[in-house]
Amino acid sequence: MNEKGNLVRLLDLDDDFIIDLKYATADNFTGQKIYNSNDCYMDRHTAEILIRAKNIFAKDGYRVKVMDAYRPISAQEKFWQILPDDNFVARPPDMAKLKVFRPTHLNGLCVDVTLTDMTGKELEMPSAFDDFSEKASLLCQETSEQGRKNAAYMKAVMERVGFQAYKNEWWHFYDVSTEPTPFMNFQI
């Protein structure tokens, strides 16, 4: 099993996920490949509760596609270099000053996901992934009713197992059911 600190490779625990790490390709807001591989790592507990959510979705006829999970600090720094705007990209932490940790991609305690049907076709959601507009918000009413319904269903299941949705991005979920761990720069 591939492990690094608290991180585990998700497919080593359960291979029924669709892994499409957007930053392992140029198909993302940067237009550049940021990650070295499509290997999806996350905190062990985060992976375990994501598996619980996946099992609930599967009973309803859906699969989970993971678009981001653990992110090295260096990748966050690269994002900030490309788009230094606090409204869209989290400012990289000053590790010399950081004393308290919270759930983020930098410690593998966040996941960006969507749902597909059993063949892998994505369900309609309120916006595209990494849409930096109000349409990405779970609260935006200017999107399709079906997209909002699908996002609300995904949010309900994710929150039932221990995640908390981020209101400005329908795809982003924090693992709030475990103690945050230090941020890392393990390269994937």
Rank of each mutant, 00 (worst) to 15 (best):
I51D: 10
G120T: 13
Y35H: 09
D12K: 01
L109T: 06
G5R: 07
T30P: 08
P92L: 01
Y35L: 15
V176M: 04
A165C: 11
L11P: 02
F79Y: 11
N6R: 12
M118N: 09
N55W: 03
L98V: 11
R91H: 09
F88W: 13
T104K: 08
E159Q: 13
L138V: 13
L7I: 01
A90T: 08
I51C: 06
T119C: 06
F183D: 09
G147A: 05
M184D: 04
Y23G: 04
V8H: 00
E169A: 02
G120W: 10
Q76I: 08
E124C: 06
R44D: 07
T114W: 01
R52Y: 06
A26K: 03
I56E: 13
L139E: 12
L106S: 08
T143K: 11
C110H: 01
F79P: 00
E159A: 14
K33Q: 14
K78S: 04
W80E: 06
G162N: 06
I56C: 10
K99E: 06
N150I: 15
A24T: 03
Q32W: 09
K22T: 13
N168I: 04
L10H: 02
F186I: 04
P72Y: 02
C140Y: 10
L13N: 04
Y35N: 09
L10D: 02
K167M: 03
E134L: 02
A90Y: 13
T143M: 05
C40K: 01
Y174Q: 14
L11R: 05
T46D: 05
I51S: 13
L139D: 13
N107A: 12
E134P: 08
S177W: 15
M154Q: 06
T25I: 14
P93Y: 06
M42K: 01
T116D: 12
W80Q: 02
R160E: 15
V89R: 03
L106Q: 04
L13Y: 11
F163C: 10
V66W: 04
P72T: 07
T104W: 08
M118R: 10
A96G: 10
K99H: 11
T30M: 10
D39A: 07
A128Y: 12
D39S: 02
F129H: 11
D117F: 05
Y174N: 11
R102W: 09
M42W: 00
V176T: 00
I188Y: 05
E122I: 03
G147R: 05
M67Q: 09
S37K: 06
D39G: 01
K97A: 15
C40F: 05
L123I: 03
P93I: 02
N168P: 06
I82A: 07
N36M: 09
V64L: 00
L83Y: 07
L115C: 09
R52Q: 15
F163R: 09
R63T: 00
K149Q: 14
M118A: 12
L138P: 04
A47Y: 10
I73P: 05
F17G: 00
V100G: 08
M67D: 07
F88C: 14
F186Y: 12
T181H: 05
M1N: 07
T46W: 04
T30K: 04
A26P: 00
D60T: 12
L123H: 02
K78I: 11
Q146V: 14
E48F: 04
V64H: 04
F17I: 00
N107K: 03
I19P: 01
